[in-house]
Design a protein around this nucleic acid. Structure first.
Lengths: 121, 121
DNA sequence: ATGAAAATGACAACCATTTTCATTTCTGTT
DNA sequence: AACAGAAATGAAAATGGTTGTCATTTTCAT
């Protein structure tokens, strides 16, 4: 198993908590860090698994990683500028539980994302 | 400029109004239609431009196209056997609209999936 | 110091998507 | 029907993000 290279996380923080693997790699190289693209990807995967970061997709399909608080929440993302708002999902939790019960499912989890165009775009 | 091949649209409809370019292409070939993957992509681009379809991203980054104005549904998936139930998302639609308004976003879309363990597992 | 396990990175493989370009089909005009 | 020009098509190559491979280096406990 591969562990996260701590410099990757700190670079993601420095990038504003929101960047793609390629961007993180370029940033690190520009700052003189010697690190391979492969290691950046691996570190991000590991951070993902540990739920320290979160992954979304840009319009062009590129994956962008962002730091994630540990409380369960959802995101409202602007499709054109990437601005992100964290959202409480109380309504969804209830809905998920109700639907699960109705169909005899248990151990319910859910994922939900909202996307649109923000006021500035 | 390229126009949409009408068979692409009708195949997307037949697929439940929700499919990737590759899936549409495979479906058409399985049904004996002679069409190139390139044309499928081109047709989808054109349908996008005409706002007849909408594009989202799967978790793996693949683009999935959806008929616009299609009241879409969500899925409740069993993690162990894969059994899937289609679900109405009225509650989510309302929630999405409310949250969007609250934050000044417009043209709101959303994706949501529920997963758990079904009664048989 | 020594060996085992983990981490690393150069490179190749993958796969969805786009571009290129030669060929075919469609369209309207004579 | 014949023709020309435009649009559509699709095979193949190019693109680009991401993942897999594997030999080498580093880490770490004994």
């Amino acid at each position: 198993m591969s562990r996260s290279n701590p410099r990757v996380l700190s670079t993601l923080e420095r990038a504003g908590g929101f960047a793609s693997a390629q961007e993180i790699h370029k940033l690190m190289q520009r700052e003189g860090e010697k690190i391979g693209l492969t290691t950046v990807y691996r570190s991000l995967q590991s951070l993902l698994g540990d739920k320290i970061v979160d992954v979304l997709r840009r319009d062009d399909g590129e994956a962008i990683y962002r730091l994630c608080g540990d409380s369960h929440h959802h995101h409202l993302v602007c499709k054109s500028c990437g601005k992100t708002v964290e959202i409480e999902g109380g309504a969804i939790e209830k809905w998920a539980k109700a639907v699960a019960l109705e169909h005899g499912f248990r151990d319910i989890g859910h994922s939900a994302e909202l996307f649109g165009t923000c006021a500035d775009c």
